[in-house]
Amino acid sequence: MTHTSPQTTLYPVLKGALDDAVRMVPEAKRTSSLKACLAEKVLTLAAGGETNPTILTRLAVLTVQDSCHSCYGCEGW
């Protein structure tokens, strides 16, 4: 019997949501700072209980578009 932890099953969801969020950003704006900002948003949403990858992706992108100009210098887009 194999035991899988919540972290093991959640990792692919978080990675997929982040990858999808990054793909939604115009290629010229895909800086490492912007990617870090998107990752922070995905993790914050997941920590709040969200596990739907589509919702994680959309909310992360929307949040960054609305507020990224003021976070960690990632310059928004």
Rank of each mutant, 00 (worst) to 15 (best):
C37H: 13
D66E: 11
A46H: 10
L43R: 00
P26R: 10
K35V: 02
R30Q: 14
L14M: 01
E75G: 11
M24G: 09
G49T: 03
G16S: 10
S67V: 08
T63H: 04
A36Y: 09
E75Y: 00
S67L: 12
E40R: 11
D20K: 02
Y72Q: 08
T44N: 07
A47L: 03
P6F: 11
S33W: 10
V13Q: 00
E27C: 05
K41V: 08
S70H: 01
C71F: 11
M24W: 00
K35S: 12
T8A: 15
T9E: 15
V61L: 15
L56S: 06
T8R: 15
G48Q: 06
R23E: 13
L38Q: 09
D20G: 05
L59G: 05
G48W: 02
S70N: 03
L18R: 01
G49W: 14
E27L: 09
I55E: 00
L56Q: 06
V25M: 15
A47H: 08
C37W: 08
L18H: 14
P53T: 15
L62F: 06
K29L: 09
A39W: 02
V22G: 12
K15S: 13
G16V: 11
P6S: 11
D20A: 14
K41W: 06
D20S: 12
S67F: 09
V64M: 12
R58A: 06
L10W: 08
L45A: 08
V42E: 00
A46E: 00
E50S: 07
Y11M: 07
P26S: 04
E27T: 14
K35L: 10
K35G: 14
P6N: 07
H69S: 01
L10A: 14
M1A: 04
G16A: 11
P12D: 03
S33P: 08
D66V: 02
C71R: 01
C71Q: 05
V25N: 07
L56R: 00
L62K: 09
P53C: 12
A21S: 13
L43N: 04
A17T: 13
M24A: 15
G16P: 06
S70W: 09
E40F: 05
V13I: 15
L10F: 05
Y72G: 02
A47V: 03
W77C: 09
V42H: 07
M1C: 04
G16C: 02
G73H: 01
P12V: 01
T2H: 12
T2W: 12
A46P: 02
H3R: 08
L56T: 08
T44F: 13
H3G: 13
S32G: 03
V61G: 06
V13M: 09
K15Q: 07
M24K: 14
L14H: 10
L18D: 03
T57E: 10
Q65I: 05
E40W: 14
A47Y: 03
E40I: 12
Y72P: 00
L34S: 04
C37Y: 09
Q7L: 15
A28Q: 06
